[in-house]
């Protein structure tokens, strides 16, 4: 294995978990999350040496991931609508609380626009700086700030989120 391939393999091994978790928050589905990460990596691999030299590889891969997610969304764009509820049933027993939180968070995220969802996930969950989020989303830092403010305002008004924040995270 040459140095480039080895570097790519190390990156995948080290970052696939974090990338998949971000992808899950965007898609709400593990199979789609895995597919999204794989697709972003497939697109990044042929340019890996250039990416590694010129850019922060993780930012580049995240950018590829967000663009891929947007294009998937775009293809199904007209079919997908922000929804107040998700059509899942709650589980019973020990997993009930965990599942309730998961369903509620998915539902709350789905109530945001795509840009708001992306900004919240990248800024809050992935802890990227505003400049990094702007780079990933290919927009101005001011846009990231205003989108984040709009998203937070929307989340504050959401009774489902208030209900969740009243309880301890599991």
């Amino acid at each position: 294995m040459d140095a480039e391939a080895e570097g790519f393999a190390q990156f995948v091994e080290a970052r696939q978990r974090a990338l998949q978790r971000t992808a899950w928050l965007l898609t709400g589905d593990w199979a789609a999350a895995e597919d999204l990460v794989q697709t972003a990596l497939v697109r990044s691999w042929p340019r890996w040496e250039r990416i590694r030299r010129r850019d922060d590889p993780e930012i580049y891969v995240r950018r590829a991931m967000l663009n891929t997610w947007s294009s998937w969304r775009r293809r199904r764009w007209w079919g997908e609508r922000p929804s107040e509820t998700v059509p899942d049933a709650q589980a019973v027993g020990d997993m009930a609380t965990e599942v309730t939180v998961r369903i509620a968070v998915q539902s709350v995220l789905k109530s945001l626009t795509a840009r708001q969802r992306a900004v919240v996930v990248l800024r809050v969950f992935d802890d990227l700086s505003e400049a990094q989020v702007a780079h990933v989303l290919d927009c101005a830092i001011g846009t990231v700030k205003s989108t984040m403010a709009q998203a937070v305002a929307r989340l504050r008004e959401d009774p489902r989120l208030a209900g969740l924040m009243d309880r301890e995270p599991q």
């Binding site: 998949q20 998961r102 509620a104 989340l155 995270p169």
Partner: peptide, 22 residues
């Protein structure tokens, strides 16, 4: 608010069932 939200996302997301391999 951000911290609480982060904790919540963290609690919701869980672990990926499968690894993405090279």
């Amino acid at each position: 608010m951000d911290r609480q939200l982060r904790d919540l996302l963290e609690a919701a997301v869980g672990e990926p069932p499968r690894q993405v391999t090279v």
